[in-house]
């Protein structure tokens, strides 16, 4: 069971890395929010799953699973709220016409 921790940990680390690069490199608010949402949801979710597998027989792994579920619903909701607020305030999305 604890061997499953390795692939999930690697997936989480990859998504954190890619999302951080995206956060720094992407052109506008919406695409950066999209990158940050990946970091929150997939990255942190995978790492929590990896930790749950690593500590498998035990109470801690169930607590970590609960945290992963919470992140799974809270992360996308927060990014949605951010993007919606930006849209309402008239932040224009980046298009290919922009330099």
């Amino acid at each position: 069971m604890s061997l499953l921790a390795i692939p999930f940990g690697l997936i989480g680390a990859f998504f954190f890395l890619a999302a951080t690069i995206g956060l720094l490199r992407l052109p506008d608010f919406y695409s950066r929010a999209h990158a940050a949402a990946k970091c929150d949801t997939v990255g942190a979710g995978s790492i929590l799953l990896a930790l749950a597998f690593a500590l498998c027989p035990g109470l801690a792994s169930f607590q970590l699973l609960g945290l992963a579920i919470l992140i799974l619903i809270a992360g996308p909701t927060a990014s949605h709220a951010l993007a919606r607020a930006a849209d309402r305030r008239g932040v224009a999305p980046w298009t290919t016409d922009d330099p």
């Binding site: 919470l70 619903i73 909701t77 949605h80 709220a81 309402r88």
Partner: peptide, 15 residues
């Protein structure tokens, strides 16, 4: 309040 997003409203009611 400004009308809340239905997604955010649902999730907040859920949690």
């Amino acid at each position: 309040a400004a009308s809340p997003s239905p997604i955010v409203a649902f999730i907040v009611r859920l949690v």
